[in-house]
């Protein structure tokens, strides 16, 4: 899985998926960073809309750091 973020595209490896209080919790690693995505019903209409990468990245607890990346 890949995640677009303010520091470019990063690999995301899922280590586990669980359900907590009606939220789907995905735990994994964003590169070397331990990451966690919590998705609630209220998030569903948002996903895929305007924020795209930044919101997902922020949800992962990723602090944006700018790095110029070439393709």
């Amino acid at each position: 899985m890949k995640v677009t973020s303010p520091i470019g595209e990063l690999p995301f490896v899922v280590r586990g998926v669980s359900l907590h209080d009606g939220h789907v919790v995905v735990e994994g690693e964003l590169g070397a960073w331990r990451s966690r995505i919590e998705v609630g019903a209220e998030d569903l209409p948002m996903l895929g809309r305007a924020f795209r990468g930044p919101l997902i990245a922020a949800g992962l607890g990723l602090a944006g750091i700018a790095l110029l990346r070439r393709r």
Partner: peptide, 20 residues
Amino acid sequence: GAFCLSGVSFLHSLHAGRRP
């Protein structure tokens, strides 16, 4: 800010509750 402005912008956007 050449290195960090985008990161700071996204954080500010989240805290301030406004779109980037």
